[in-house]
Amino acid sequence: MIKLDHIYKSFGRIPVLKDIFLDYGQNQAIGLIGPNGSGKSTLIKIILGMVLPQKGEVTFDGKPITGQSQYRRHIGYMPQMSRFPANMTVSQLFHMMKKLRKDEKQRDLDLYHAFEIEQMGSKRLEILSGGMKQKVSAALAFLFDPKVLVLDEPTAGLDPIANEILKEKLQKSLGNDRLILISSHILNDLDDIITHVCYLMEGEVKFFKPLEQLRAETAENRLNRIIAQVLKQEKNHV
């Protein structure tokens, strides 16, 4: 569904992504993990067309995304940090988004209701706390029932209850030919959601494997143990 074909990107002289080749398919929930500065955010931004790679090409459903914007109607994106116009209210923001994507009639209001966004409708976005802004972003990402969900550190600012709601929603969303891409440091949160692990390190894909296969290879169950095992094995090989 989303294919990254030999992507190379550098900022100045520092290469951030070196020759990335990935093929994300339908019905996958991919955990994009890796240490700080491994290029996770850049990878996500390249998929969304916000960062333009120097080499290589990204295709969405077989069509290259360069210079395109319409493919993004299939994507729901929840950014790592949100900041909105100060005097806009929550309901105005949702109203604007619906206007901007008015061709899309599908609505998924599960999170909108679960996070009680309606009740904060008249509040100005500026006075919302970080966690509440995250809730708004999450509800926005799901609003149009998109085929692809891209979540950048979704659980970072959320309280435990909201976190559970989001996780449940993600579990429910998998299937129906969806593709979910989550980047996170908090591996415990990913355990029950993801089907594949994509590990980035220093701008290269260390591995991209189904979680089941990794479980079998390492004889571990929890994701953080699995990653630790794999990295240890790598070290021993070297």
Partner: peptide, 16 residues
């Protein structure tokens, strides 16, 4: 100040 909001808009089907 609107940088993050711009990023959110960039994720929508809108031309730069």
């Amino acid at each position: 100040n609107m940088y993050e909001f711009m990023v959110l808009l960039m994720a929508q089907p809108l031309k730069r």
